[in-house]
């Protein structure tokens, strides 16, 4: 029974991992920017939420919205002021610059908040639960999973139904044609990075409600995000969600078996998938489509 609970928890954490990967995949797919600071933005979202909650006792939904807005602005500015200068056929300059940015954010967080491991406490909501078929599930994880699914659906609708979403997809294919249609490429890219960082920060905040974090959590979150992108395929929303849930389940069940293992089991599962792909076994969810 405890295994079943671990799997359910894994699915819920996995929804957030899917969002991590989705943000990274957007930046990579549209701008070809490999954002090494993605993990730090995930952690930054958590610290921002914790700081807002400590200043005034807001509703968690209000905090999520505030963090989303701030994160969008940060991502927009990052792309517009810095990364737009570095993009091109060679992905290395942007990778190294975002690596530098990750070092800056990490150490700035250390000097502002210290190295303590923290968690966000939501009081009564934290412990509330319902019992379904003899399995007790927390209300909060359910809400978080629901938010993750809603965000996935919202990004899907944005990509297919709105002008800016179509511009994102067009920019991924051929930005020159996009510019002939009157779009400013730099602003399209800036909005896409804003969306990517927004997803990272919101998912990071929601994860912080479920598990603890420190300024050094960024690396682990980044690696998880990349694993989601590589397993789930670039440009596939469903792939990201399934890969996120897969890694979430593996990690939570792994932690159940060995509490000290950290992200070891999800890393091993990822490497196993790489090895299987190496021998050209087609995976159900590994089809590539942009």
């Amino acid at each position: 029974m405890s295994l079943l609970i671990a799997i359910i928890n894994g699915v819920m954490v996995g929804g957030l991992y899917g969002l991590f990967g989705l943000g990274l995949a957007l930046a990579f797919g549209i701008m070809r920017v490999v954002n090494i600071a993605h993990g730090e933005f995930i952690v930054l979202g958590a610290y921002l939420g914790a700081a807002l909650l400590s200043v005034m006792p807001l509703n968690i939904f209000v905090v999520v919205c505030l963090v989303a807005i701030i994160a969008f602005g940060v991502g927009w500015l990052l792309q517009f002021s810095l990364l737009n200068r570095l993009i091109g056929p060679n992905p290395v300059p942007a990778m190294i610059a975002t690596m530098g940015l990750s070092i800056i954010i990490r150490n700035a967080l250390v000097s502002v908040f210290g190295t303590d491991i923290r968690a966000i406490d939501l009081g009564s909501l934290q412990d509330a639960g319902i019992t379904l078929f003899g399995v007790s599930i927390g209300i909060l994880p359910l809400i978080i999973f629901a938010i993750a699914i809603v965000l996935f659906l919202a990004v899907g609708a944005l990509m297919t139904r709105t002008t800016i979403g179509r511009a994102f997809r067009a920019a991924a294919d051929d930005f020159e044609i996009l510019e002939t249609l009157g779009f400013d490429r730099r602003k399209v890219y800036a909005s896409a990075m804003g969306l990517a960082i927004m997803l990272a920060a919101v998912a990071g905040l929601l994860l912080a409600v479920r598990s603890s974090f420190s300024p050094y959590s960024g690396v682990e979150r980044l690696l998880i995000s990349f694993e989601v992108v590589i397993i789930g395929g670039l440009g596939s929303l469903r792939g990201s969600l399934i890969a996120g849930i897969f890694l979430g389940v593996v990690q939570v069940v792994g932690l159940k078996l060995n509490p000290n293992s950290g992200p070891l089991f999800s890393h091993l599962a990822f490497l196993l998938i790489l090895l299987v792909r190496h021998f050209d076994v087609t995976f159900l969810f590994a089809r590539k489509k942009i």
Partner: peptide, 19 residues
């Protein structure tokens, strides 16, 4: 910490102005 911050900043500046 200042040293690490400076390293990060240098990496960004080098990439922008002299990759």
């Amino acid at each position: 910490e200042m040293f690490l911050l400076l390293q990060g900043l240098t990496a960004i500046v080098v990439m922008v102005f002299a990759p």
